[in-house]
Design a protein around this nucleic acid. Structure first.
Lengths: 192, 192
DNA sequence: GTCTATAAGCAGATAGAC
DNA sequence: GTCTATCTGCTTATAGAC
């Protein structure tokens, strides 16, 4: 019973990269096989449901990754300013400085969009809620916090699309840099 | 020599709808054929280069459509406020109140992203420049106008992604409604 | 857990009749 | 300008040996 050639976490990392590069429809089993170094049959051993299974696993994987890199720093103790800065560093790393597409975007298109409708909605809502909660704790009124949380997600998603269409990541970095000012507008500098 | 069953403009409209619904990879010839009501061979008669040709035509078609609905009202004479409002009405119509995906997003992914790299970059740059020019004419300093123009595109692109992932267009409408305030921040109400 | 082989179907694209 | 028929290659998925 030979051990796996690479740990399952690395398989998921490589599947994620392949889906991000080609989209759901464009990520053929041939490409997924090449990206992971596993034969088709091995992929079906890990993911009996085939490509759909792989995409679902990727969705869960990037969700956990996002939680660790972006939401966890935001939820720690201490003043809101440094926590936002750590969140932004996390976003920058998660999206590879603007080069990586977001699976919310990729998996929202076509066949995948129907298959993962519920997962996508829950995921976006969860992130918006976590952001709004952090802003609320920092003293931003609830309704405003909710809108600003949503605006934050809108901003980095839009920046990713524009960066990709332009072939220039600079807009992503600029949008991230301007997030704290927008999120904490009209707040005292030490607020939270 | 029988006349075409439907005018070419309608063919392009239906192709656009199909690409928007399924993405580039997901829009198979079978689907494009079904969407237009034309057989495969007829599609190849209109677009000898096949699917790539159809996508290029769609890109040009939506570009002209965007020009007419969004940029033209912005470039008219008169105060900036009403012109921005007409632009927003145009955006709302162009993106079907937030339901339609943007081809900048769809065609930026995978194989299409490589094929249409230059067209996408030019298209985004053109729209950003037109927006920046309008803001500049209204008295917004050039550097700020450029950033705000880019932010506008980022905002509605991000709103489209979030709206689709959430299955709820309301964020798109909210983002559009807030555009004038963001674009004309720190400007006298009659500016322009 | 990986491999080779293969099935069954769909992809994009073309030929030639009408 | 549309049609039917067809081609080649790639798609997802499975079977069974090791």
């Amino acid at each position: 019973m030979p051990a796996p050639l690479i740990p399952k976490e690395e398989v998921l990392e490589r599947l994620t990269a392949a889906f991000r590069a080609h989209g759901y429809e464009g990520a053929s089993l041939a490409r997924l096989s090449e990206a992971t170094g596993l034969g088709r049959a091995s992929l079906y051993h890990y993911f009996p449901g085939g490509k759909r299974d792989m995409a679902a696993a990727v969705l869960e994987f990037v969700g956990a990754h996002f939680e660790r890199l972006v939401l966890a720093p935001l939820g720690e103790d201490g003043p809101i300013g440094p926590r936002l800065n750590r969140m932004i560093l996390g976003l920058d790393e998660f999206y590879m400085r603007g080069e990586a597409a977001c699976v919310w975007d990729l998996f929202g298109i076509g066949r995948a969009g129907e298959a993962f409708r519920d997962e996508l909605r829950q995921s976006v809502d969860h992130v918006c809620a976590a952001l709004a909660e952090a802003l609320g704790r920092a003293g931003v009124p609830t309704a405003i916090a909710k809108a600003r949380a949503e605006d934050t997600v809108v901003a980095f998603q839009g920046a990713l699309v524009v960066a990709r269409a332009r072939g220039d990541r600079s807009v992503f970095e600029r949008v991230l840099a301007e997030l704290p000012g927008r999120l904490l507008a009209d707040m005292p500098p030490a607020g939270g």
